[in-house]
Design a binder for these strands. Structure first.
Length: 486
RNA sequence: CGGGGUGUAGUGCAACGGCAGCACGAGUCCUUUGGGAGGAUUUGAUCUGGGUUCGAAUCCCAGCACCCCGACCA
């Protein structure tokens, strides 16, 4: 049921539904208010608007730098995959079959071989890799691509699950299993660093259970984040593919001894879904909240010029401050539009800009400006003389505060339970739940059926601990993370 | 694909089977400008196709679209 909206309230359509009333609607309202994205004419496909795309651009820029430090090279592979390639790996095709879009008609006639629009690029890339790799000297092969992929999801949701989405997918080939696994784990650390230090989203690292792992992978690692409704969101994943694909795509190399070996592979990806995670982690009922390090506009300077004669002075001063900030590498923007100040404040608040600078004649007379934090709403009167430093410090403080706040929230809603009653209660209360699990697939399925909770991951950094499966009572050696998820 | 719901102006809503209206938005002008301002004025709509009726936004049938719940999922 859609929430009824007040028909005649003046700012009804601009108001954001409170989170506790309807979390889904709140999420959509924040996206609309911040002007991030909307659905396009094709069902489930998203139009990412400039303010939303800026978040993705920054993501690309930051990740690209990290990838390059590790020697990863960017490349691009085709959108269309011949159906027979996709069908080569049995688990893989089975996993993706229900959600593939297939072109059967082109150039005015029926195609002899249908073309699958890539749901992911393992198959088409590995088919090519097999020609690129001949010797151990060609390894490791470290390739990344920024691309769009299509998965015909039944129920789309802006950013979180759209039919077409943007991502980066990295694909590597290594000489040994150990090296491949180390690499998959290393990418996980890169993603963790990005999630926690850039997006200020605390994540839990771990291994996926058999039933949750990537179709065709030997094992899947993931980062799980908690949204403000207590649900889990998979922030990014990294897969150790073993030799599953190498064997069907014939990725072979001659080792130092002249023996033919299959390569060991990994793949890893992060999508525009992370922007949904960003929204659901930090935003409030006033709109979006962007952590400073992922914000393109970190500071918005709003001018207040009540009379025409001081307009020029105020705008001049605003531009001066803007320049000083830009020279310090701070992303700032002047809003000198001739509208009421309140209108500007609301707009930039909805858009989540970390710091707002209010500058008017009164401030200039005092050689100061008013700084307003988006995360807390706190107002600070700052002398103009060292404003760049004040702002830089404040940005750093906001970044830390957002992370700490999110971490505290996650911890407050993570329960460790030992009985089935407590488990059910904790899941109903929308928590992350750490509980023992016997490792059996049917037990996992039964828990999902009864409570809606799935195993998000088997966390690393779990102390070994003997216990009993919360459902079956069978012995278990460690706890796994259960939650409802997106 | 199953269950439920809704289709009226850009948006949110109203109209007993009898002249399609209100609020907000948008455009223009004037006054305003330290948290969404006021006044004047203009703009603009019944999802599609059938049927019932003197007469349909309203009732019936079919189609289409959207929303919610489920299965699926980065």
């Amino acid at each position: 049921m859609m929430l009824p909206k007040n028909p005649n309230e003046k700012f009804a359509e601009k108001k954001i539904t409170a989170r506790k009333d309807d979390y889904s609607q709140w999420y959509l309202d924040v996206i609309a208010a911040a002007d991030l994205a909307e659905y396009g004419p094709v069902r489930g496909c998203m139009v990412i608007k400039p303010h939303g795309y800026a978040l993705w651009e920054k993501t690309q820029k930051i990740l690209d730098e990290k990838f390059k430090e590790l020697g990863v090279q960017n490349a691009y592979f085709p959108l269309f995959i011949p159906e027979k390639l996709l069908k080569k790996e049995e688990d893989h095709v089975e996993g993706f079959a229900p959600e593939t879009a297939i072109v059967t008609y082109a150039g005015g006639k029926k195609l002899e071989e249908p073309l699958v629009i890539r749901p992911t690029s393992e198959t088409i890339m590995y088919d090519v890799f097999s020609n690129w790799i001949k010797s151990y000297r060609d390894l490791p092969l470290l390739i990344n691509q920024w691309a769009n992929v299509v998965r015909w999801e039944m129920r789309p949701r802006l950013f979180l699950r759209t039919v077409e989405f943007l991502w980066q997918e990295g694909h590597t080939v290594h000489e040994t299993e150990a090296e491949a696994d180390r690499y998959a784990r290393q990418m996980l650390e890169i993603y963790k660093d990005f999630a926690e230090n850039i997006m200020a989203i605390p994540v839990i690292l771990g291994v996926k259970s058999e039933s949750e792992k990537f179709a065709g992978a030997q094992c899947t690692y993931s980062l799980e984040a908690m949204m403000q409704d207590g649900k889990a969101l998979q922030f990014a994943t990294s897969h150790n593919l073993g030799q599953n694909f190498a064997k069907v795509f014939d990725i072979k190399y001659l080792d130092k001894n002249g023996a033919t070996q299959y390569g060991w592979q990994t793949s890893w990806g992060l999508s525009t879904r992370t922007i949904g995670g960003l929204i659901m982690t930090h935003s409030d009922d006033k709109g979006l909240v962007i952590p400073p390090r992922i914000a393109s506009i970190q500071v918005i300077i709003t001018t207040i010029a009540p009379s025409p004669e001081n307009k020029e002075t105020v705008i001049g001063k605003a531009k001066e401050i803007d320049k000083i900030l830009k020279n310090q590498g701070i992303g700032s923007l002047v809003d000198s539009r001739d509208i009421r100040p309140g209108e500007k404040y609301f707009e930039w608040e909805k858009k989540g800009i970390p710091i707002r600078v209010e500058l008017g004649p009164k401030d200039i007379a005092n050689d100061s400006a008013v700084l307003v934090r988006r995360d807390t709403g706190e107002k600070i009167i700052a002398p103009l003389i060292d404003i760049a430093k004040t702002i830089a410090d404040l940005l750093a403080k906001i970044q830390i505060n957002l992370f700490d706040r999110a971490l505290e929230y996650q911890k407050s809603r993570t329960k460790t339970v030992d009985t089935w009653d407590d488990f059910v209660k904790a899941i109903e209360g929308a928590n992350f739940v750490l509980a023992h699990w016997s490792g059996e697939k049917d037990v996992e399925a039964q828990i999902k059926k009864e409570t809606g909770a799935t195993i998000r991951c088997i966390p690393f950094n779990q102390p070994a601990e003997n216990g009993q499966c919360v459902k079956s009572g069978k012995p278990s050696t460690k706890r796994v993370l259960f939650a409802k998820s997106y």
